[in-house]
Design a protein around this nucleic acid. Sequence first.
RNA 1: UCCUCGGUAGCUCAGCGGUAGAGCGGGUGGCUGUUAACCACUAGGUCGGGGGUUCGAAUCCCUCCCGGGGAGCCA
Length: 435
Amino acid sequence: MVWIEELKEHVGKEVTLKGWVYNKRDSGKIRFVILRDGTGLLQCVFAKSEVDEATFELADLANQEALVKITGTVREDKRAPGGVELSVRSLKLMADSENYPITPKEHGIDFLLSRRHLWLRSRRQHALLKCRDTLIRAFHEFFEKRGFILIDPPMITPTSCEGATTLFEIDYFGEAAYLSQSGQLYMEPAAAAFGKVYCLAPSFRAEKSKTRRHLTEYWHLEPEVAFLDLAGDMELAEDMLLCVVRGVLEHRADELKLLGERIEGFDKHTELLKNLDKPFYRISYDDALELLKGKAVQMKWGEKFGADEEAVISREFDRPVFVHRYPKASAPFYMKEDPVNPKVVLNFDLLATEGYGEIIGGSQREDDLAKLEAAIERQGLPREPLEWYLDLRRYGTFEHSGFGIGIERTLAWITGIHHIRETIPYPRLIDRIYP
RNA sequence: UCCUCGGUAGCUCAGCGGUAGAGCGGGUGGCUGUUAACCACUAGGUCGGGGGUUCGAAUCCCUCCCGGGGAGCCA
């Protein structure tokens, strides 16, 4: 038994493969069966003059996605997709497949998402999820090389980490518990224990967000580093993003090309990614307000940027842009106040290019116990469940920073696809939990 | 939650007051190099549910259900 991806090493030899029928074409006395085994596609040729009558007839009986076992001779042929094809000697139908729903034509998104378990077999989804695999490996490699320790946060938590956003509530032996929306509060103690740490885990958001940039369950990567200030935090985010973008471009060129066939302006996007380099742009919230004013977008100081404003800002730059030091009033309690200007906090959002929007949010954490207590009080958060978190400021408080990056948003940006729902094997969306 | 668009054959859609349509997919037949093959023939429908207007409703109105796109929130 061999896999399709290994066939170039078997040219001229007879091999046996198992796989599913991807597509068929026939023309009188010749039949073409495109075989799919997960590692690639292979054109199998049935010539009436070269196979026996029964085998030739069998080629007709195998429906789309039927499992077959095929034996034949590997041959190089320019006319075949992939460069090699199989001259078939025998075929065995192992398992039939009647009326496979995803035919090789266009389908709507509702139809496809309802059949996500089958949709994964198609070329585009295959390419996308291979890019996801490469992206995640690139992230791990980056942090491993820098001496970070992987720390897994809990997914079941007693309270909200950030207060405002809606949480999924679960019944925990009669007590209310919640699915985590961030591992950050658990990574800060880990940073005090190990210095440089990161986690990669699902985060859950119960907001009824219904846009191309939201999932209710997404994969959240969160580094947290001791003795790192805001400037260092942005440098870390910059180095990390450059590293993983280059990793995907290098290892998944074929997949990206396939994905780009149906995306307008894809060449320009790829060109931009290939030329991506340090430094990314850094502008303050105040600078961003000025920039928007120049684009005839009037906003009062203190107002948050919406998706439109973020798109306007990001389109002004040919590299991702850090927007830092946002107004304190709308910031989460754990962000450190700027000693230079107490009206803002030491945080940043990283906006991806071409209007993709925010893919990273990070900050230097408040390390002053009194200020942190005041922020909790000011935001009306219950203090008791956060006592353990306050301990970090009691026992050797330390300067530290971190950020969170969405795997799916990053992948959508790199691959140039519009909606993030296809960047995760089984997307969880508002009103969609099947399959 | 709000705004907006939609639900007609297995799929993608056209039809928008007067007998239910196309392409693809399925079936049958033809073709020895096809690339989402092509050509011919063929089967396939409570026009999302309910109510109303009308001589007559897929088409107009009301309502409910389901889905797409977007906003807010965020990664």
